[in-house]
Every structure is written in C-alpha cells, then in structure tokens.
Write a protein that binds this DNA or RNA. Structure first.
Length: 152
DNA sequence: GCCAACGTTGGC
DNA sequence: GCCAACGTTGGC
C-alpha cells in the first residue's frame, strides 16, 4: 500500500465534506497538471491519502482518506458547464483522470503548514518546499508516520 | 490583494 | 527546441 497527499480548497472538498457521508466516496476531480495526474494513475485501491486544505484560513493537513476507486477519465473535462472543462481533451484518449476517495479520519485539529515545515523528516516533501505547486504527491512511509504522529 | 514561483502556450 | 509572455497557484 502506498501513501499520498492531495491538496484541496475546503470550499471545494473539505475533510468535513468527506466525513459527512463516510460510506459514499467522493469524485476527486479537477486535477489539471500532468505530474499530478500521473500520480493519480499510480494510485491503488486502499492507498491512504493525507487531505490538505489550501488557499483558506486554516492551512494544513486536515485528515486521512482512502482511495476507493483507481483512476478513470475525469468526467468534468467533458462537461462544458464545469470550471474544469477541457475542450481540447480527446474523447477517445481523455487527458485527465479522477479517482474516488472515501473518508478515513479527521485530525482533532488542522495540522498547520509551519509545523510540518519544522519537521526534519518532511524536508523532502514537495508540500513544504518553496514555490511548490504540485497538488498530488507521494508520501513515504517515514513521512506518513511523522505526519500522523503530529496529527493524531 | 499582493506577488513570487511555477507550468503552459505559441511564435519563431 | 528555444524561450518570452502569459495565466495560475498558493502562502502571506
């Protein structure tokens, strides 16, 4: 099993949105970056994911989710009404993928970015690196354990 | 709202 | 294939 981290704007899909219906997975759509997409394609069912809230008041890791369905073509790319529509994506070879994720747990508090930055074990994590924009990234077991130790 | 850092686009 | 211009990300 592998570990990941995914960014979300909580107005879009927060840990509370996931927790609101733990039995029903959510479509993780709207990834429009090739490197992030390639990571989505590597995800396996059961992989665990840190849910990170970005571009909001309380920035940080909010909890854990699980991959409920491996990558499949993101429906939003073909939905003209969606902000994630991509008219250039070929129907016979869709450019963008989504996965489904379901709720696992919510941290008792948002684990803030500056605390993550202070952890030596997380120095290599793209999230804490300056100017980083990757929205889906792999997390090593060591990194995972370090985050959970702080978050739980 | 600012703005640095970044990824993408498109002319050449 | 280069690279300047542009649009976006995301912390502050």
């Amino acid at each position: 099993m592998a570990y990941w981290l995914m960014k979300t704007e909580p107005e879009e899909c927060s840990i509370d949105d996931l927790a609101a219906h733990p039995d029903r997975p959510v479509v993780w759509e709207g990834v429009r970056n090739y490197q992030a997409r390639n990571y989505l394609r590597q995800m396996q069912e059961g992989d665990e994911v840190l849910i990170y809230h970005s571009s909001c008041k309380l920035i940080g890791v909010a909890g854990v989710a699980r991959v409920a369905r491996v990558a499949y073509p993101d429906p939003a790319q073909f939905d003209a009404a969606s902000p994630y529509a991509d008219p250039k994506s070929p129907r016979d070879n869709p450019r963008w993928d989504a996965v489904d994720v379901s709720f696992v747990s919510k941290f008792p508090r948002i684990l803030p970015l500056d605390e993550l930055k202070a952890v030596p074990a997380l120095e290599e994590l793209p999230l804490v690196r300056r100017g980083n924009r990757l929205s889906v990234m792999p997390v090593s077991k060591t990194e995972w354990q370090a985050v959970l130790r702080l978050g739980k």
